[in-house]
Amino acid sequence: MSTNPDTAPSLFISHGAPTFADQPGELGYRLGQLGQMLGSARAIVAVSPHWETNGLRVSSHPSPETIHDFYGFPKELYAIQYPAHGSPEVAKLVVDTLASNGLDAGLDPDRGMDHGVWVPLRYLRPLADIPVICVSLPINSTPDQAWHLGQTLAVLRQYGCLVLGTGSLTHNLAEFRGSNTDQVSPYVHEFANWIEDRIKDGDYDSLLHYRELAPHGQRAHPTEEHLLPLFFALGATSKADRFEVISREVRYGMLSMASYCWQ
């Protein structure tokens, strides 16, 4: 795994269940390796499925709180803090970049980091030494709209801002088994392999229509919010980027932790 020091990467990281916060597994280990190669990024600009709003919002708090937006998990998880700073300066840059491309966004001085953001970041940058700015997903966004959002913010990579989409490559919680297992539902691999192959082929039109074209597309995502950050990360890529798979791990037999890097 390598990174180009001249341009910050675009990443898609599957954050999985909140238990990922203290169960690193293969993905946590690989994120730790990748994080050591990132150098001194100016900021991390992140989109998570756990912040959906009416219209676009951009977090601007200089010291965003660690939000424990999950219920019924071990109490140890609620004590975890990820004390990264925010950056009002970069937040304004994000808003201005969106505005220059016809997208209105407001600054949110109160928003912290939901678990979709801080859980993977605690492995990627355990020292919490890079400012984090969160961008919301407008309610009822489509893959095309998430893609366009990523395209609009792709220029930030040239200014040293890492672009991060964090979600889950499969996310059918009706099939959640409650404990980890080595018995993976076959459809999980079939769907994940289809996504990876389309990315490698540059077949982005098929990706945008995954619900009709991918095997088990609607089973893998009964609702779309956890896959939309993948399209955000893809939109921020360029043809010059090298695509790398960070991990193909599967948890609980149905939750693909597949994660990708473009650099």
Rank of each mutant, 00 (worst) to 15 (best):
N4S: 14
T7Q: 15
S14K: 05
A17D: 13
A17G: 04
P18C: 03
T19Q: 11
T19V: 14
G35L: 11
M37H: 09
L38G: 02
G39L: 02
A41C: 14
A46L: 04
P49N: 08
G55E: 07
P64K: 06
E65K: 11
I67C: 01
H68W: 05
K75L: 10
L77G: 10
A79S: 15
A79V: 04
Q81W: 08
Y82P: 08
Y82F: 15
P83V: 06
G86N: 10
S87Q: 03
A91R: 00
K92C: 11
T97E: 04
L98G: 00
D104F: 02
G106C: 13
D110W: 13
G116R: 10
P120F: 15
R122Y: 07
R122T: 12
Y123F: 13
P126S: 10
I130K: 03
V132T: 01
C134M: 15
L137G: 06
L137S: 14
D144T: 14
A146F: 12
H148N: 03
Q151T: 04
T152M: 03
Q158M: 07
Y159F: 12
G160E: 05
C161K: 01
C161S: 05
V163C: 06
G165Y: 08
G167Y: 07
L173G: 03
A174I: 13
E175F: 08
E175T: 12
N180G: 09
N180A: 08
N180C: 10
V188M: 13
V188T: 06
A192R: 04
W194N: 01
I195P: 01
D205H: 14
L207G: 00
L207Q: 00
L208Y: 05
Y210G: 00
R211T: 15
E212Q: 15
A214F: 09
G217F: 08
Q218H: 13
A220M: 06
E225I: 10
L234A: 03
G235R: 02
D241L: 03
R242C: 13
R248M: 12
Y252D: 05
Y252C: 00
A258Y: 15
